[in-house]
Design a protein around this nucleic acid. Structure first.
Length: 411
DNA sequence: AAAAATGATTGCGC
DNA sequence: GCGCAATCATTTTT
């Protein structure tokens, strides 16, 4: 009602009342110049101006009468048109926002991280955690993984509840504004188009809030990732048994320490680690072995002995079971001793020599004596290939220990 | 606390 | 995609 009177008094701007509202004097004049309705409008203005002098009841009645006036719709539409041309044209310029690439990116990322998109079962993470805790194979990674997933689920939940809140608030507010505008459109020149535009503006504002939400969610996920999935931060050394298995394979395939995919899988299974961890391990091992063979010599000998003992045991069991000795620790001990002390006739030591020779041959180029010595030589033939490829400094100039030590033992 | 060891990552060439 | 080399960020050893 107050609005109504304001609008009407605004129309009286003709009479000198300077109202900054919609109707500007020119427009009214133009309308008057349309000709035919001139008389009617004159009447209307007269009445409008008179309203302020009337009592409330009278004014109400007059208002109603004006509302029902046959010229009212025309006046309304004209005013709307004018408003459209002036006010809205100024700020209605930057419409048509294409799907924001930024928000698209955020959406994609959230989808990829499983934050948005289909719920993968909020309880599944907890279930997985429980399973990992109670289950027989408490792999470290699985526990951490479930922990990560639990945290992720938490983020997802917050995200969704916030999103819902925003959406609800948005629609609520939109409805409110629409109702308000619709209501006011009875007394003010507000076209449906304008309402639409207002709704669009509101939506845009809210979507920018949404984007903030998405952005902060993305950040949270990134932080979570960096904390949980960047393994460098939470590195665990492999357990002794695992490194033993890996070393065994490495040194028993020293000539070609490149496990096939299947071999990697098997090793991974044996060690309770992933295939890529096996790959990492071999990559590190190769490079570090190559870089300083001398440093690894002892280890190499150790594992050479070990595998040799195993082989010996296997062959012994296979070929002749009548042999009196089935010693395990004894053999390894012997092998070690032979390694440290004088070369022996035991198979372990022989294998060990092969390893040492392997290095020596690499230096000198001659591996015939080696191959002549025995059983384990064949797979060493291509030994040079993997370390020779790119390695001028390390092998040619191993400062002292490796070469000398070896030649000593072999001699 | 410093140094060494170690698992993982990154950049590059093939 | 793989392997190498360099490097990072921890963990373990000294």
């Amino acid at each position: 009602m107050d609005d109504q009177t304001r609008m009407l008094t605004g129309l009286t701007g003709l009479g000198g009342l300077p109202q900054p509202d919609v109707g500007d004097p020119d427009s009214v004049r133009k309308q008057q110049s349309l000709g035919q309705p001139q008389q009617d409008i004159g009447d209307i203005l007269q009445q409008i101006m008179a309203i302020t002098d009337e009592s409330l009841d009278e004014a109400q009645a007059r208002k109603h009468a004006l509302n029902c006036h046959r010229m009212k719709p025309a006046l309304f539409s004209v005013l709307c048109e004018i408003k459209e041309k002036t006010v809205l044209s100024i700020r209605g310029v930057q419409e048509e926002d294409p799907p924001d690439p930024q928000i698209m990116r955020l959406d994609n990322m959230l989808l990829a991280e499983g934050v948005s998109g289909p719920e993968k079962g909020g309880g599944s993470a907890a279930a997985a955690a429980a399973a990992a805790a109670a289950g027989g194979s408490p792999t470290d990674s699985s526990i951490e993984h479930s922990d990560y997933r639990a945290k992720l689920a938490q983020i997802r939940q917050i995200y969704h509840s916030e999103l819902e809140k925003y959406e609800q608030a948005c629609s609520e507010f939109t409805n409110h504004v629409m109702n308000l505008l619709r209501e006011q459109s009875r007394t003010r020149p507000i076209s449906p188009k304008e309402i639409e535009r207002m709704v669009a503006i509101i939506h845009r504002k809210f979507s920018s809030i949404q984007m903030q939400l998405k952005q902060s969610t993305c950040e949270a996920v990134m932080i979570l990732r960096s904390r949980f999935l960047d393994a460098r931060r939470k590195r665990r050394n492999f357990n002794k048994q695992a490194t033993e298995v890996l070393n065994e394979y490495f040194y028993s395939h020293l000539s070609n320490p490149y496990p096939s995919e299947e071999a990697k899988e098997e090793l991974a299974k044996k060690c309770g680690i992933t295939v890529s961890q096996v790959s990492n391990w071999f990559g590190n091992k190769r490079i570090r072995y190559k870089k300083n063979i001398g440093k690894f010599q002892e280890e190499a000998n150790l594992y050479a002995v070990k595998t040799a003992v195993d082989a010996a045991n296997v062959s012994a069991q296979a070929s002749q079971a009548n042999s009196p000795a089935t010693p395990n620790s004894g053999d390894t001990y012997l092998g070690q001793r032979s390694l440290n002390g004088e070369g022996l006739n035991f198979t372990p030591s022989l294998h060990l020599q092969v390893d040492t020779l392997h290095r020596a041959t690499h230096l000198t180029g001659g591996y015939e004596e080696l191959s002549s010595s025995g059983l384990f030589t064949p797979h060493r033939l291509d030994a040079n290939s993997w370390q020779d490829t790119t390695n001028p400094p390390s092998v040619t100039s191993p400062p002292g220990p490796p070469g000398s030590v070896h030649s000593d033992t072999s001699n």
